[in-house]
Write a protein that binds this DNA or RNA. Structure first.
Ligand SMILES: [Mn+2]
Ligand SMILES: [Mn+2]
Ligand SMILES: [Mn+2]
Ligand SMILES: [Mn+2]
Lengths: 219, 219
DNA sequence: ATATTTTTTTAGACTTATCTAAATTATACT
DNA sequence: AGTATAATTTAGATAAGTCTAAAAAAATAT
C-alpha cells in the first residue's frame, strides 16, 4: 500500500514520460509536483527500494513494469472521477482537476470498476485524455500541438495539456472546446501567434503560450 | 485545513457523544479509532490548540461550536457518500463504510452540495443514520435498542449501531433490513436472547450481542 | 481511609514527508 | 580541455503521527 505522496510521484513520472521512454529528471518531477528537488530525491530512493522505479543517482528515473501498472491505475481513477464530476455532477472542465487529484487516491478496486460501469465505460476524460481500461490498455491518438499547424491547416480540437482552472477558463472565453473545428487563417512570424477561426464564426488571435497547450487532429 | 487524522478524531468525539453531552474519554476515542491512548492524548492537545475541542487533562474532551460544525460536515459527507455507493453504484450496505471512511475527507464544498442534489437530498443513509443538511440540521428519531423490547412488542427496524461488514452480512442472513417489521415472540431470561418474527415469515433466535446493535421504532 | 486497579498522561523513540543550505556531479560554453 | 553554470544529491532541521513503557492521577473496592 502506497502513501498519497508516493502515488503522486509515480503519477508524475508516468505523466512526464508518457510519450517518450527517456528517463525522467529530478527537476521535472519537482516542478510537476511543486516540491523541492531534494524531496524528490528522497522519494525516488523510496520508490526504487519498493521496485516501482529504476533509479540511478544523477541519471533520472523510469517506471518498472509494476510501477507502470500502479501509475496507470491512478491515471484511470483520476480520469474516471473527472468524467463523473462533469457528466453526473455538472461540474465544468476547469473545476475538476483538483478534486480528482484527491479522489484518485481512494483505495477500492470495486469502486473503480463500478464507477467505470456507471459512466458506461468512457474512453476519454473531459480534457480529451484517454482513460485506461481495467487492464491498463488505452489508445494514444495521433495528435498535433496546435502551434505546429501552418496557415491553411484545419483541425479538430481533441485535447489540452494544461488542466489548470485559469487556462481552461480562458479557453472557454475563446470558445475552444473538445470536438470543435479550428482553422489557421494566418500565422505571425513575429511571435508564432495564430489567427484562427473556431467553429462556425469566432475568430481570434491565439498566442503561442496558449496554442502550445492545445492538441488537434489534423483534418 | 485539517489532516485526515485530525478529522477522524473529531468525528470519533462527535459519534461517541452524539446522544449525550457528557465529555468523551481518551480511552473511548482510542477504542473507536483503534489507536493507542497516548496517541489520542497528543491529538486532543492539538485539537484543543486549534479550539475545536475543550480539553482538560484527565477530564475528557467535548467539541466546541466550531468543532461540532466540522464534525457534522464530516458525518454529512460520510453518509452522503455511503448513500451514493448504495443507490448509484449498487454496493450493499455492508461494503460501504470503509470506502466512505476515505471519501469523507475529500475537500470540496461544491462537491458535497452537488452530490447531495444528485442523490435528491436523502434524509437517511443505508444504515438508517440521519444525514445532516447543508446547515448541519438533522433529526434524531426516537428509537429503542432491540434488546430493550419485551415479549409481545412489535417494532420497525430503523437503524444499526455497528457498520462492520461481518455484522451486516449476518443481519442479511437473518433477513434483517431497514423498514422491516419485527415482533418479539419471547425473551429468554438465561441470556436475554430473543425469539423474533421478522417480516412475514422468518423466525429466529437473536442473541443479545446482536440485538444490542439494532434500533427499532416501537409500533 | 487505604490499597488496588484502571485510566490517562508523559517520555522517548521511530517513520514519513517536507524544507533550506551546502556539497557534489554533470553539462554547456569558450 | 578547463571553467562556469546547472542539476542533483547530501546533510541537517522540523512537524505530524504513531508506538511502547513508565509515571501519575483518578476511580473502585475493601
Ligand atoms: Mn493526487
Ligand atoms: Mn483530465
Ligand atoms: Mn475517515
Ligand atoms: Mn452509515
Amino acid at each position: 500500500m502506497l502513501t498519497v505522496s508516493e502515488e503522486n510521484h509515480l503519477k508524475a513520472i508516468f505523466k512526464i514520460s508518457e510519450r517518450n521512454g527517456t528517463p525522467v529528471s529530478t527537476n521535472k518531477i519537482a516542478h510537476e509536483l511543486n516540491t523541492a528537488a531534494a524531496s524528490v530525491t528522497d522519494m525516488l530512493k523510496r520508490l526504487s527500494a519498493k521496485k516501482l522505479i529504476k533509479y540511478e543517482k544523477y541519471q533520472g528515473a523510469h517506471l518498472t513494469e509494476q510501477g507502470n501498472q500502479l501509475a496507470t491505475r491512478l491515471v484511470r481513477k483520476h480520469r474516471l472521477w473527472e468524467t463523473f464530476l462533469v457528466e453526473k455532477l455538472e461540474f465544468s472542465w476547469d473545476e475538476v482537476h483538483q478534486i480528482a487529484e484527491q479522489l484518485e487516491h481512494i483505495q477500492s478496486e470495486t469502486l473503480t470498476e463500478r464507477l467505470d460501469a456507471f459512466l458506461d465505460y468512457p474512453r476519454f476524460d473531459p480534457h480529451g485524455d484517454p482513460i485506461p481500461d481495467r487492464n491498463g490498455k488505452f489508445t494514444l491518438r495521433k495528435q498535433h500541438v496546435l502551434d505546429s499547424l501552418e496557415q491553411g491547416d484545419t483541425g479538430i480540437i481533441i485535447g489540452v495539456s494544461n488542466h489548470d482552472t485559469d487556462f481552461l477558463k480562458l479557453l472557454d472565453e475563446l470558445q475552444v472546446k473538445l470536438g470543435v473545428t479550428i482553422s489557421i487563417l494566418s500565422k505571425f512570424d513575429y511571435d508564432d501567434s495564430l489567427k484562427v477561426r473556431i467553429g462556425e464564426s469566432a475568430e481570434h488571435i491565439i498566442p503561442k503560450n496558449i496554442s502550445k497547450n492545445i492538441y488537434v487532429k489534423k483534418a
